[in-house]
């Protein structure tokens, strides 16, 4: 019998999750709990002809062989197409649906869970399972657990896009950028990795609604965040 409360992804690590890597671990554990070797959390936009597995806030553990040449999926992929027409989770049997993802992933069944944020962004969580198609009870459990982890992902990561103020660390990074320092130099000064500095810069750009470092510094100066 499945015991969701004892699961890794709903245990202490759920509350401790702080960055994308932590959420990769939680979604991977959720997938594994339902005998799914692969998972993909994909942002599904409005008019695109394909879905990008590497862009934005998507997370997955699919091998490159399961993605198209640009690192994504066709809009026709049935597992993803499902979330464009339904708000309820659905399971698929490999023998009943013509899904390249399911077939190339060598899975027996798949689950497609539509998810959305309070800011109206839509996502799909796909699980490729090495087992028979989950029944309704299990599907309800998967949907519930996916919604819990996804809400936490929103609280910790996705909601940062709609927060306007800068944190102390972000202001520090704008200040050093205004002094002409590169990301690598700021990383050395602050004892961080270059990846972390660039993560902060990407978040600042979104918050200030600007597209490059010069605009970022100009915007921060105008608003008095730095002087």
């Amino acid at each position: 019998m499945l015991e969701p409360d004892a699961a890794f992804h709903l245990g202490p690590e759920f509350d401790n999750a702080l960055n994308r890597m932590d959420f990769f671990r939680l979604f991977k554990a959720l997938a594994s709990n339902f005998d799914a070797r692969y998972f993909a959390l994909i942002e599904v936009g409005g008019d695109e002809t394909r879905f990008d597995a590497h862009g934005g806030h998507s997370l997955h553990n699919l091998p490159d062989a399961l993605l198209d040449a640009k690192g994504g999926f066709s809009r026709d992929e049935p597992l993803l197409a499902h979330v464009l027409v339904s708000s309820a989770a659905r399971s698929f049997d490999a023998t009943d649906v013509k899904s390249p993802l399911l077939e190339q992933g060598g899975a027996q069944s798949a689950v497609s869970v539509p998810l959305h944020t309070v800011t109206a962004k839509r996502f799909a969580l796909i699980l490729l399972c090495n087992r028979e198609r989950p029944d309704h009870k299990e599907l309800a459990l998967i949907s519930h657990e996916a919604a819990l982890v996804f809400q936490r992902y929103f609280d910790v990561i996705l909601s940062l896009d709609s927060i306007t103020g800068l944190s102390d660390r972000e202001i520090q990074i704008v200040r050093w950028t205004s002094e002409g320092k590169t990301s690598a130099e700021i990383a050395i000064i602050l004892g961080l990795s270059e990846h972390t500095v660039n993560s902060y810069i990407a978040a600042i750009l979104r918050k200030l609604q600007v597209v490059n470092r010069a605009q970022m510094v100009a915007s921060a100066l105008r608003s008095g965040m730095i002087n």
Partner: peptide, 16 residues
């Protein structure tokens, strides 16, 4: 995750 470019080309450092 840790080798991908998080910033667009317009945010390259030579735009400073």
């Amino acid at each position: 995750e840790y080798t991908r470019d998080q910033l667009s080309e317009t945010c390259a450092e030579d735009f400073l």
